[in-house]
Every structure is written in C-alpha cells, then in structure tokens.
Design a protein around this nucleic acid. Structure first.
Length: 299
DNA sequence: GAATTAACCTGATCGC
DNA sequence: TGCGATCAGGTTAATT
C-alpha cells in the first residue's frame, strides 16, 4: 500500500496521538526491520516530546524536542495502529471524519515496535515483510542524510511543475514508467499511482521519458498534462484515505477507498474507462513489476 | 553512467 | 485439504 497518499493518510492518523505527546516507553520486539535498529534507539526516544509529525516522500518524520528526528518508512507492508486504553472510555471516539480509534488489544503477529505515548495512546508498528525502516537522525543532519539527500521534489508542492520535471527527464532513455518510479525524479510515486497518472494523461508507460521534453529542455504539452495528472491522482487518493490492497488499513483500522477508483491498476482484461476508448487494459512487466495500461488510448 | 535485475522476507492466492 | 509455484505496494546493491 504505502505510496505517498497512504503515508500521508497514516501521518494524519498518527498526528493527533503523537504531536505534543511524550514517548513514555518504546518497545522493540525484534532487533531489526530492513536494517538493525540503532543500539540507542529506545533511549533516544524515551522522555522526548514530538513537536511535529511531517512527511517527506514516503518517509514519516517525527521532529523531537531533543533535536533529533525519528525517520520511519513503511516499506511494502508496514502499518500503524493507534490504540487507546480501555479505561479512557474513548473507544469509538472520533479521530477524524469517518475514523475511529482501536480499543487496546492483544499483541498481534508482526507487531515489531510499540510506542507508549503520554497521550495515553499506544502506537503499534506492524510489518510482516519487514521492509520498513526506523532511524534517528539529528535534525541538522537530515537534509544531508543518504536517505533524504537524493529525494526528488514533492509532487503536490507548487514548485513541482512541468519545467522541473523536464529537467529531470531530458535525455532519459528509460521508459516513463521506470522514470516516474525513480524517487530522485519525483518523490512518493509507486507502482499504483504511476500506472494511474499515466492512464489519466494518456501516455504509454513504454514511451521513452526523454520524448516529453522538447529541444532546449522545454516541456511539451503532454508533459504538462502528465504533471497535472500526477497531482490530481495523488490528491484524489489522499482524499479517499489511500488504497487498501489485501489487508492494509489506516491507523484507525478502516480501509482506504481509493482502490475503488482505479482507472488501470489491477484491471487487466477490463474495458478502458477513457470516454470513447474501446481499448482493454493490459498487464505487462517492466523492470520486474506489473504495469497496467490501455494500449489504445495511451501513446 | 545509465538502465535493468536480483535480493531482501512473509503471506495470500491459484492451480493441481 | 494440502502443496508448490507465483506474485505483491519499496529500496538498493549488483550486474549488464
């Protein structure tokens, strides 16, 4: 699940329980995720307060009163759930429109990290495939950190526009699909939303990325349309609470709804939804992963 | 140097 | 019902 809209949905779910709250205790239930936890991980968190919970690309960034930043990545299967103590009597209390907290429950399989906050909430990180990541970085070093340094522009930021994308794609021979998955080109897109944005802008995932840039690095009208499609697809997905494939949930346990709006992703063999298009969605494999597109209206 | 592939690890699903 | 093969949202190291 976790591409930009899902990470943003998680951020919005965690923020009320984290921001302004102190880490009372931090429990690691295994020594590593994708990488080992730092030795002083718990020690550096306990007693500090979360000033703000932000997002950059697919990373969650908890800014701490200690001057550190807790950097978290959900990988492919990571999720958080927010639990409140039963004694607080707030089961079912509204967290956000349409959202509800979990009542405190037993530990589940693949619960790897538990944050107990002074707000009374327990934040439980669950990640079956363990491709997730948690690190602590001094705030002053964040921008130069290897994981952050190369990350491209935020697609929903006004500074991300066709001119900016043209710079990144000029001369690129890689297929558009691969170029848009490259986090240094634009941050936060994954397999699903690349497929969706390419379908919406009627661009073939197989087209060479550099063909959308005219001589002199000038963006073509089709590149302008692609940028608009990326922004539209991401904004719609955030508004819907992200996509829920398989068992993925928001922090309150409810399912995201965006998968009901997929235009191309996971629709192999179904009719293309582009008005007036008689095509059928096809699945191909590019750089080892599934691409869904309509060969009739995506050129 | 750019582009592609393999690997990380587990769980769900599908066909037999 | 059980078993093996296949595939899955991301990142990155290794290879072409």
């Amino acid at each position: 699940m976790p591409e930009l809209p899902e990470v943003e949905t998680v951020r919005r779910g965690l923020a009320p329980a984290m921001e302004g709250a102190r880490f009372v205790s931090v429990e690691l239930r295994r020594p590593d995720l994708r990488r080992p936890f730092p030795n002083d991980f718990c020690q550096r968190l306990e007693g500090t307060t979360v000033a703000a919970l932000k997002r950059r690309a697919k990373y969650l960034l908890a800014e701490l009163s200690s001057g550190d930043v807790l950097l978290m990545h959900l990988g492919m299967s990571g999720s958080f759930r927010v639990e409140l103590p039963a004694t607080a009597g707030r089961e079912g209390a509204s967290l956000s429109p349409g959202g509800y907290y979990h009542a405190r429950s037993e530990t589940k399989a693949h619960d790897h990290v538990v944050f107990s906050m002074s707000s009374g909430a327990r934040l439980v990180f669950n990640d079956p495939r363990r491709f997730g990541l948690m690190l602590i970085v001094p705030a002053a070093d964040l921008h130069d950190h290897p994981l952050m340094r190369e990350v491209g522009p935020e697609p929903l930021d006004p500074s991300f526009d066709a001119a900016r994308l043209a710079l990144a794609l000029a001369g690129k021979a890689a297929p558009l699909k691969a170029a848009l998955l490259d986090q240094t080109v634009v941050a936060g897109l994954g397999n699903i939303y690349v497929c969706e944005a390419l379908h919406l802008s009627h661009l073939s995932p197989r087209r060479k990325a550099g063909t959308l840039v005219a001589r002199g690095g000038v963006p073509t009208p089709r590149l302008v349309a692609l940028v608009e499609a990326v922004k539209a697809v991401l904004a719609d997905a955030i508004e819907a609470g992200g996509s829920s494939l398989r068992d993925h949930r928001q922090t309150d346990g409810t399912l995201g709804l965006f998968q009901h709006r997929f235009r191309a992703y996971d629709r192999e063999g179904e009719p293309c939804v582009t008005p007036g298009c008689a095509g059928t969605v096809r699945r191909i494999v590019q750089s080892g992963r599934s691409t869904f597109f309509c060969p009739v209206c995506q050129k």
